[in-house]
Design a protein around this nucleic acid. Structure first.
Lengths: 233, 233
DNA sequence: TGTCGCTGACGAACATGTTCGCTACGATCG
DNA sequence: CGATCGTAGCGAACATGTTCGTCAGCGACA
């Protein structure tokens, strides 16, 4: 069954490092930077590492986890502002927008990250920074803790939704279809849509995103968590 | 090339309806109710319709669009409360929670819907109802219009994130990994996480969801949209 | 009546993520 | 030094969504 056991003469390759998780992630990052994320497939990665696709699953549970690792590297570039009691609000909104923009360039990354909560080093630093900014703004600890979750989710979901980079070009058509459906909505059946028609699509993406973050931060700030101190032991 | 042109004797089938979009969606719904959403594959659907997978793409652009059609049928069951100036807030939060719960049973539906804005009849009714409730609560039209987007997105994203029904059982492991990462976060490196540790994971899913919706509604209500009336012609 | 051309349908194929057993290497132990 | 066993690695396979080139059937027209 194995007469062609010629080991492909891997003399030109750098002696084949023994295949580790970090190595796989590093190669994935290189491919992504050189050819884009959509070229980072399990098979391509395996070929690059001179092995078969199945071997990768020893170090990475699935594609989503690989995406998580890639994101964590991207997050390293994010500039984290210090917690300042005066500028906390604008810094926070800016940071969230920057996070969202990072993902907007790689929507399929956003889709993976939405499913699988990342647990990388840089992601933890991001969470910590957001918590710090909320605290600097006087937000109670419980609300800040619950809020950081929703704030990051909003950014991730926005990127997953609005991002149509290459791979899924048809999504624009769908959005246009939705816009048309709203525009053509019969007035008597959907009176509120008719009334809000002009406002539903107004504003650029960035404006709306900033507004959404501002609104959510305001809500997190002003909304108390239920029965806050009862469970205290 | 076609000596086996025996038409499979479709005498037992109801004469094979001539393959329409509505028919495909109806069969998809039946399969979903009988065997679960994960069994609704293009191939299965084609087999059921006595054709090949390729034929479906005449009536449906892709799997996501099919998911959108399925969701719209599910949304028909949603009870839409009337716009009441007194009870608007609880009705609104309740409706959003109901919408989220609908999707929580079918997370892959949520993931599709997040990408592709649905434009079905029932979805439009939902949007209209939410707009009406916000208006009943005295929210300015512009903020309501921008808010309905974010509110629905929060529900959809939550379902896509927390939903681990069958198909992706490993996501729980990842979440546990994230929890562990947060618990073990070194105190000096992530002081805010350390401080918020107990609050980060407190509360049941339903409690947190209700709180998130409440907070977001409050924010939408209190946050003005930028330069509201300038573009007016 | 015979021929042309069009459109809906389809069989086959491709690339993807993921899984299943087998293989063969290397450490461990007698 | 030799036998044993655990395990990393891997080839092959499977099911999925999606696309491509082709074909049958049918209406229009000479």
């Amino acid at each position: 069954m194995s007469p062609r056991r010629v080991p492909v003469s891997r003399r030109d390759r750098p002696a084949k490092p023994p295949l580790s998780r970090d190595g796989a992630v590093a190669v994935a990052l290189r491919i992504m930077h050189e050819e884009g994320l959509e070229r980072v497939t399990m098979r391509r990665l395996a070929t690059e590492l001179d092995t078969g696709p199945a071997s990768l699953y020893v170090y990475v549970q699935n594609m989503a986890e690989l995406h998580g690792a890639i994101l964590d590297e991207l997050l390293a570039r994010l500039h984290l502002p210090p917690a300042d009691a005066d500028r906390w609000h604008d810094e926070l909104v800016g940071l969230l927008c920057a996070y969202t923009h990072l993902l907007l360039d790689h929507p399929s990354l956003a889709r993976s990250v939405l499913t699988l909560r990342p647990s990388g080093r840089h992601y933890l630093r991001l969470v910590d920074t957001i918590l710090g900014l909320l605290r600097a703004g006087g937000v109670p600890i419980g609300q800040a803790a619950w809020g950081v979750d929703v704030l990051l989710q909003l950014g991730t979901a926005t990127a997953a939704e609005h991002g149509t980079r290459g791979e899924l070009a048809g999504a624009d058509d769908e959005r246009q279809l939705f816009v048309m459906a709203l525009r053509e909505a019969p007035e008597q059946e959907h009176p509120n849509i008719a009334e809000a028609r002009d406002d539903l699509f107004s504003g650029a993406g960035m404006q709306r995103l900033t507004w959404a973050f501002t609104a959510l931060v305001a809500g997190v700030r002003s909304t108390a968590t239920p029965v806050p101190e009862i469970a205290e032991g």
